[in-house]
Amino acid sequence: MKKIKIADLIKYLILLTATLIFVFPLVWVFYNSFKTNSELFANPWNLAQSLSLENYTYAWKQANIGRYFLNSVIVCSISLILCLILSSAAGYALTRLKWKLSDTVMMIFLVGMMIPIHSTLIPLFLMFSRMGIINSHLSLIIPYTVSGMPIAVFIMTGFLKSFPAEIEESAVIDGASMRTVFFHITLPIARPSIATVAIYTFVSMWNEMNYALVFLSDQRKMTVPIGLNAFKGQYSTNYVALFAAVMITILPSLIVFSVFNRQVIEGMTSGAVKG
């Protein structure tokens, strides 16, 4: 009996060490973000002498983080809505309607999950330059919408396949059109999977930096990740302000995660586990 307890103790000890490795860096940045630069250099371990929000106000004003947040919210919400509309309609067609090419189309979406982002960067950059939309939010909304689609289609078709179509069939027998069925029955039924897709897709769009880095050079248009990176370039010696800026940008993600962690984890891993 005693032996088992020691084994348990070791298990928890290892896991707590791992937790420390994954979580302490964030805690460390948090409490250092209240210090002055000289305090930071004097001792990186201890707490700040006085709790001042000066770094936060400085970062917020100088780094223009408010602007970046607004840009990110605009870009990500529009992309998310478009992505959800297109993918849920596609998911419906792939599971509930009968047509010859449906397997082929599903295949195309699945292969899409494998396309490296770098292979589309240059052609899209040239295309968008020619269209004159480079440096605008539209140049992010278009690729974000599309890059969210494969996983969204995948999760939704998976859900709809597992859900019997009988309710929808009886509605059709009662005289509803396929479109009515989609809006009034299928979409409400698929709400949990849409929520999973929405949260997961939003998080990945919110953190995306490849497209944003290449397509946006105007600071006023930048989204949070590249805005933060630009701030790092400009104020590289004011470390504590950078600590505060990092803290501001990760706080929303942490809040979202503390509320929706189940959906986020489910969405992020379902593609890998079932694919």
Binding site: A18, F22, L26, M209, V224, L228, I250, V256, M268
Partner: peptide, 14 residues
Amino acid sequence: KVAFFVPNMISTSA
């Protein structure tokens, strides 16, 4: 599970 997953929520730039 949640603690180990936290870093996945944060952008690579942060």
